[in-house]
Design a protein around this nucleic acid. Structure first.
Lengths: 161, 161
DNA sequence: TCCGATGGTTGCATTATTAAACCAAGTTGC
DNA sequence: GCAACTTGGTTTAATAATGCAACCATCGGA
């Protein structure tokens, strides 16, 4: 590779997210953390990834403020990896990935789980994107434009449906 | 590696999505396609990635039904890569990634673009997840359970806030 | 028909991922 | 209090993915 290209200085927020959590394991680690995993061994067993990789990934997630280390809640001398608010903020990304599989996967019968609302136990609706005045938006209804206060050269890009 | 682990047979829909589009470039290629890129050269120039990588990625996206090849719309003998409905369905994932950066990035001032609704030109709201009876849900209000009709052994996992 | 643009392919160097073996500190059984 | 096991890693070596640069065939325009 000569060095895998990093997007951390890209001005696109999507690229910046991918730089932080866009690798093969980070999102699954966060998924497990949302399911309640806290200990190194729990992550390793549930995900089945090599321990050296897990070490590197957990360290990177801590460095980025997605996980934080805390003394183990069971009183032992070990440590736990806990989600920060930034880590819990990944939830909508995981929901979007899940719903994309549910809608478009070629073999949906292999998906054995559904996301439900805890109170009623029924499947959730699809993620919805609204305008400030309450209209439900699709990709075709949106565009990307320069943020006020930044260099004005950026052209308005229309998202084509 | 001995072989990068594939999640295509995992029963978790998140893992299956990551297997399809969870690499460094695929989501950015789809982002560019949503912005209107269609030609090999357009993708290569806007993303700045090596041409051999782009070749492999475009082929994989076509194989998966995310892009499709079509004769160039300008009448030339070249071909264009167009998004399929499955490809356009990636839009909410990109929005979720963008909003996560907007909310949690350490240097938000480096983000130079915003997503607006095309009609009014104003920023969109955050993605919202609702229950079937219309309650706005957070991660803590949801759980993952076995899909009816699949093996009943799967335990209900609560998503911890 | 010549020459640049387009859309790749090939070769090689470098980095990332992986499994498996190893290891030190913490914990438990007795 | 000491041996054995668990936890949470590190090290090593092999293989796969990524990247750059050079090359090349076809298309398009003058």
């Amino acid at each position: 590779m000569v060095k895998r290209t990093s997007f951390e200085n890209d001005d696109c927020p999507i690229a910046r997210s991918l730089d932080a959590i866009g690798d093969w394991w980070s999102l699954l680690i966060i998924r497990e953390a949302l399911f309640g995993s806290r200990r190194f061994g729990e992550f390793q067993k549930s995900l089945g990834l090599a321990k050296n990789i897990l070490t590197v990934r957990l360290r990177a997630l801590v460095d980025q403020g997605i996980l934080k280390l805390a003394p183990a809640s069971d009183g032992s001398a070990y440590q736990e990896y806990l989600l920060t608010p930034k880590g819990r903020g990944v939830f909508p990304i995981l929901v979007a990935l899940r719903q994309w599989s549910e809608e478009f996967d070629d073999r949906p019968e292999e998906i054995t789980t559904i996301l439900v609302d805890k109170e009623k136990g029924r499947p959730v609706r699809k993620l919805e994107l609204y305008s400030q005045d309450g209209r439900l938006l699709t990709a075709a209804d949106t565009a990307v434009k320069a943020r006020p206060g930044t260099k004005p050269a950026t052209k308005l890009k229309s998202i084509s449906a």
